[in-house]
Design a protein around this nucleic acid. Structure first.
Lengths: 198, 198
DNA sequence: TATACTGCTTGACGGGTGTACAGTCGCGCG
DNA sequence: CGCGCGACTGTACACCCGTCAAGCAGTATA
């Protein structure tokens, strides 16, 4: 038997290539380029192979999304485990590539109902984690009267970061620094601005 | 000469029908249905007429967007002229159909560069108006130390409202009431919650 | 050696997309 | 009447879309 370089078979390897190509396409060219032929082209593979490995585009897009989620979950988890979880979370929310991706999925969700369901589930999962983290921070730091309740802060961070991306998509950056400063001020009620000195 | 029912000619009337059909399609079915044939079908007209009146889909989408802007400008203006401009603005921002539309345009802007430019211009225009309105409110009510500066508040309102719509698109409503409550609390620093009694 | 299975290729289907352009109809005007 | 013109139609192009069925090479299994 031949060494299989970490893959169960060449088939699984091709499959992975397709998933990665799809992911890359979405990042680099956005939802309009998320098509059978473009993805296969990017993967250097015949378009029909896509239907050999995936029932349909809908199945593929869901898998790609779940993969995004998994990798995001790691970053998310690291952020929430860091010394200043809320600052880290906010920074993660502001991560451009990651936030852009969400918008592409939003567009695709209009076409693929299964993706819609998946996004809903993931969204609620992440929000719940964030709410929990915020409440933990409040408890640990003895913050009894935060500027807003935990769900509101979680939703606020998502909203502001996401809107910066949306507006950025049409080259609108006015007021972004201001709203960033505001968020910084809000977070200051929870966590110090500077990292704890070693 | 025949009475022309308010239109310069039947041609102009058909043209308007197409624009309205395009607008309706975008509202009812979203960006994926924004196609020559669907729009013409909705208008009850042969698809080729679309290219008789418009150079391309890009031209049409820009015109449709400008029309949206014009009608939105009216509402926007009324809101900012009302006794409690910020409350009215917030309510307008939360207007579902209107906010949904923006998302469809965002998706289309990925395809049509001209729309991108148009959206940028419009976005900056509206934001500037809002900032001005916020500053006026502060001046009139003697608010010298608002919770945040005017640009931040303007961006914040857009962001929060827009995110509610985005999440609503995937049936996510968790934390929305909370973040609404927070916005209400923020606005309370500027304007009373209840309308002034007559 | 025969069989079955995996991985992939070939070729094609039906339908949708935006766009182009020559032709036709009806009506007003000279 | 005849001309012109604006409104509209017929027909067509080239391309892209997702999907499917059949076949084929190589390997593993029996």
């Amino acid at each position: 038997m031949v060494a299989n370089r970490g893959y169960q078979s060449t088939g699984a390897r091709t499959r992975l290539q397709l998933i990665e190509a799809a992911s890359a396409i979405l990042d680099e060219e956005g939802y309009p380029a998320f098509t059978v032929r473009r993805i296969a082209g990017k993967a250097g593979v015949k378009p029909q192979l896509l239907h050999y490995y995936f029932r349909s585009m809908e199945e593929l897009v869901v898998i790609v999304f779940q993969r995004s989620c998994a990798s995001y979950f790691q970053m998310h988890d690291e952020a929430l485990s860091s010394p200043r979880p809320l600052r880290a979370l906010w920074k993660l929310n502001c991560d451009l590539p990651e936030a852009r991706r969400v918008l592409e999925y939003v567009a695709l969700a209009k076409i693929y109902p299964a993706l819609r369901a998946e996004m809903r589930a993931a969204g609620m999962r992440f929000r719940a984690l964030q709410i929990e983290a915020i409440e933990t921070v409040c408890a640990q730091r003895g913050i009894t009267h935060p500027p807003m309740n935990a769900p509101a802060l979680a939703a606020l961070m998502s909203a502001v970061a996401r809107n910066i991306v949306i507006e950025g998509n049409v080259s609108m950056t006015a007021a972004h620094d201001d709203v960033r400063a505001f968020m910084d001020q809000v977070l200051a009620a929870y966590e110090p601005r500077q990292p704890v000195n070693p």
